[in-house]
Amino acid sequence: MRRWTVLAAFVIVAGSLLLGGARMRPFGAPRHDLMDRYFNAWSQTEAATSNVVTAIVFDYRGYDTLGEATVLFTAVIGVALVLRRLKR
């Protein structure tokens, strides 16, 4: 593959990504935070947990954590498969 093609594409991607970063809302001033304010206000009541992040990780978004645990499990199984001893 031509080096210049990749370089041109890289420049376009770089410009777009930097543009995306620059056109975001200002840092530290989220525009829509209904969901997060709800978590901060209600996690002690609903999940009885003082650590809001843990409440999200294991209660509100526990399914993501299940997926994440699955990813880790999958990777361990994958590593065991790839590095296994072969009887031959």
């Binding site: 593959m1 093609t5 990749v6 041109a8 594409a9 890289f10 376009i12 991607v13 777009s16």
Partner: peptide
């Protein structure tokens, strides 16, 4: 084009991303 070089694989992804961005 199917060079088997992993950098090229990623390079094509970047090219398509560039087209999509354009």
């Amino acid at each position: 084009l199917h060079s088997g070089l992993v950098n090229d694989y990623v390079g094509w992804l970047v090219v398509i991303l560039a087209v999509a961005f354009l």
